Simulated assay, not measured.
Amino acid sequence: MVDNPIRFGIIGCAEIAKKVSRAINLAPNSIIYAIGSRLIEKAKKFVRENGLSDTVNIYGSYEEVLGDPSVDAVYMPLPTSLHVQWAVMAAQKKKHLLLEKPTALSVADLNQILDACESNGVQFMDGTMWLHHPRTLKMKEMLYDPKLFGQIRLIHSTSTFAETQEFFENNIRVKPDLDALGALGDTGWYCIMAILWAVNYQLPKTVTALPAPTHNASGVILACGSSFQWGEEDTKIATFHCGFLSHVSMDLSIYGSNGSLHLKDFIIPYQENSASFDFTSGAKFAELHLGWNLKPTQVQVASELPQEALMVQEFATLVNSIRSSGSKPDRKWPEISRKTQLVLDAVMKSIEIGFKPVAL
């Protein structure tokens, strides 16, 4: 533990907060300072069940966490419909913001959050953990080696899991007043961001939703897909599928003119301390097409900390730089979130207008 670590307040006791609270404790430059819930008994239960320190401050409202002058940053896993209200208030209270994804119900809402963060000089980052894994950096290095991979031609990603009847009846992710984006905002966020990551966040020219998405009785998306095109001169394309209806998948496949990259666990690695991906370069069919001239190479990447702890560590490092040396917030992270939200909005619009292309 470093001296003077970043003191986190957690606003809301959602299930994902259990994982991130562990990450805050594992990161060497952060501590959990406060927990806030609308019901103080729920906050007390969260502290008790997650083995948090007796020194953690427990509050029966979100306002009390934001009003505590000792809180440097907040982690906010609230329902998406509440993000604008509480994220803007957090920024106005000069609290740096680690916001759970999806960041907002629309890019217009996210703009309000990002404007508040920028005008108050606070760091923004969304809670997409896999971007912080060392495997992600290694993949990017190999993707952009022109001799190994060539030009990106096709990207496909999936993020799905099959849920129970209890989930479909009670989970906030299928409630139009809490998380109206449904599967598109939850699992689709990862797919869209993975595609943008692969192309260095170059926005596609057009987004076209695939026909026959599945909705529940309230109109919330349970499964959907889309394709992206970058234009006539840029021939690469991308597709994704996301949903709550099929067996768990976290696939990312990227195909280039001379190589390909595949992994089945891009969102949550199979294990915490190491992750891998398959990479093939220069593959050809053997004589008479009786096989291949080579097999994929499995590239293994070790990680000293779980990816969620690395996310917290990176965020806390940025916050400390602002706090201690007057640095400006890193604009990379809000830009990534905004581009993801922009494309997500385009997918939703394409669904609404009958699966026609939406220009960006």
Rank of each mutant, 00 (worst) to 15 (best):
V174C: 09
K349D: 12
P69S: 07
M1Q: 06
L181H: 08
R173P: 00
S324G: 02
D278W: 02
E100P: 01
K295Q: 10
L203R: 13
C117D: 09
V174S: 04
D145E: 11
A23N: 04
Y144G: 04
H156S: 13
G354I: 08
L305Q: 07
A14D: 13
H83N: 11
F355Y: 15
D177Y: 13
S350E: 05
L148K: 13
F355I: 02
C224G: 06
M89Y: 10
L181S: 15
I152S: 01
M76C: 09
L137M: 04
I322L: 12
F228P: 04
Q313N: 14
V56P: 01
T158S: 14
F168I: 08
R38M: 10
N29V: 08
A87Y: 06
A180C: 12
T208L: 06
S303D: 00
D145A: 05
M76D: 03
K140S: 13
F266C: 01
G12H: 07
R153A: 10
H133I: 00
I267H: 02
V174E: 06
W189D: 04
F46A: 10
F149N: 01
D145S: 12
V312D: 03
L360W: 05
P357F: 05
M129I: 03
L78I: 09
L344D: 01
F240M: 12
L178T: 10
S53D: 13
V122Y: 03
K19Y: 08
V122A: 04
H215M: 15
N171E: 13
A14W: 07
N120F: 11
S106P: 05
N171Q: 12
N25H: 09
A104N: 07
P5E: 09
I221M: 10
